[in-house]
């Protein structure tokens, strides 16, 4: 039987909800037939990707404003998972974010979040939408 799940979550612009959303991602991964990778690896990847993208929205796009909100929309079917993280900030240019420096002599504390997301997902886009921006991340799960 074909499965299809759509989930919409709204959280305050605060990092305290990261664990909750990460767990939702992990549990969703365990509900689906995954043929492209190990299900437990997918579960941990969704936890990480949701965490990184929400932190990105909270700190960078929404500029840590406690009055703002972050909206998350997750759509899963037998073929792919799509995660959209909406912010209402002024946004940023995804293409201008470089890969982190791997040289142990010139390490930076920051700048690994988008690299981690790109490493774990098949496609990552950031674009303007009505009243804000959306970071959209997709990953193939199987042939459906």
């Amino acid at each position: 039987m074909k499965k299809k799940i759509a989930l919409e979550i709204t959280i305050p612009n605060q990092t305290r909800y990261l664990g909750l959303i990460g767990k939702i991602g992990e549990n969703m991964a365990r509900e689906f037939d995954v043929t492209v990778c190990d299900r437990e690896i997918l579960a941990s990847q969704l936890n990480i990707v949701l965490t990184e993208s929400i932190v990105n929205a909270i700190k960078h796009a929404n500029a840590t404003d406690p009055n703002k909100e972050v909206h998350v929309r997750i759509n899963v079917n037998d073929r792919e998972i799509s995660i959209r993280v909406y912010d209402t900030g002024s946004g940023f240019d995804l293409s201008s974010i470089p890969s982190p420096c791997f040289d142990p002599g010139s390490l930076n504390e920051k700048g690994r979040g988008i690299y981690i997301i790109r490493s774990m997902m098949d496609s990552v886009e950031y674009r303007r939408t009505n009243g804000g921006n959306v970071l959209e991340m997709k990953k193939m799960l199987g042939n459906g």
């Binding site: 990261l18 504390e109 979040g113």
Partner: peptide, 15 residues
């Protein structure tokens, strides 16, 4: 579970 912020704090400690 560790994210990029957790890794960053350990890098900060290393430096």
């Amino acid at each position: 579970f560790i994210d990029s912020s957790g890794l960053g704090v350990l890098v900060s400690g290393f430096k």
